[in-house]
Design a protein around this nucleic acid. Sequence first.
DNA 1: CTCAGTGTTCAGTG
DNA 2: TCACTGAACACTGA
Length: 279
Amino acid sequence: MPELPEVETARILARRVAVGRRIARVWCADDPIVFGGLTSLRFRRALSGSRVRGVGRHGKHLWLELDRRPWPCFHFGMTGGFSTPRARGVKLISSGDRDPGDGWPPRFTKLRLVFDDGGELVMTDARRLGRIRLRMDPRAEPPISELGFDALLGLLPPARFSAMLADRGAPVKALLLDQSFAAGVGNWIADEVLYQARIAPRRPARSLTPAEARRLRARLRSVVHAAVAARADSDRYPRSWLFHHRWGRDAAAVTARGEKIRHDTIGGRTTAWVPAIQR
DNA sequence: CTCAGTGTTCAGTG
DNA sequence: TCACTGAACACTGA
């Protein structure tokens, strides 16, 4: 489920396993789509023997900071994620779509890094919409340089946030999904934020009142913070969230308070919203 | 068998 | 050129 909270959780997982270690061995799947044409040889040469200094993230993009360049950059698409081996007596930790399997390495492994202390980090991606790239300076180069503010760490001050809405005619839902506006917001976060801010998803962004713009920003912040604090474990999201009731395009779906949920396509994506509450 | 899907990109439109 | 829309991408699992 890779929106910002899942990617941030993957960053923390990678940090724990990789930072301070040397990459002893690299295995790459033969997958020219996910690797964007990079050869396995090129990739292995870039990483092998280097030491991991840190793990960076902006929006849904993630990268390892090594003691030499270029650095590997990851985007999880719809179904990608990081996994680590089952530690002794410890539950398998996965940030992927769902448990990629009991085996090791897991099904759909695209990249496997083995560290000098025996630890491992694997990226899996069942549907191959994820990408692995090499960049000399990830923040300064596309696609990361094209992103807008990070929805966790870079939220714009209220005045600038409102100003950004003012000249956009797109439905506010579509604007929230625009990564060059708010990096890290995905489909369910956009719907959750609009529900909690009580704003109808088709409203043109520029039609929001100042009070609505403030609510939108405040809810964006609180939803992203709460999901990250829960380590993207949706069982721990508040029961009042639309999240728990929005899946499946079920015509009979209702919120925890019994409000009818409607499903429309907006900005090309399935949008769950509550007409009784959102105006 | 059909279809939806947590994301991004690009061609086409006005 | 800009803003925006919708299809395409690739594949699994319901």
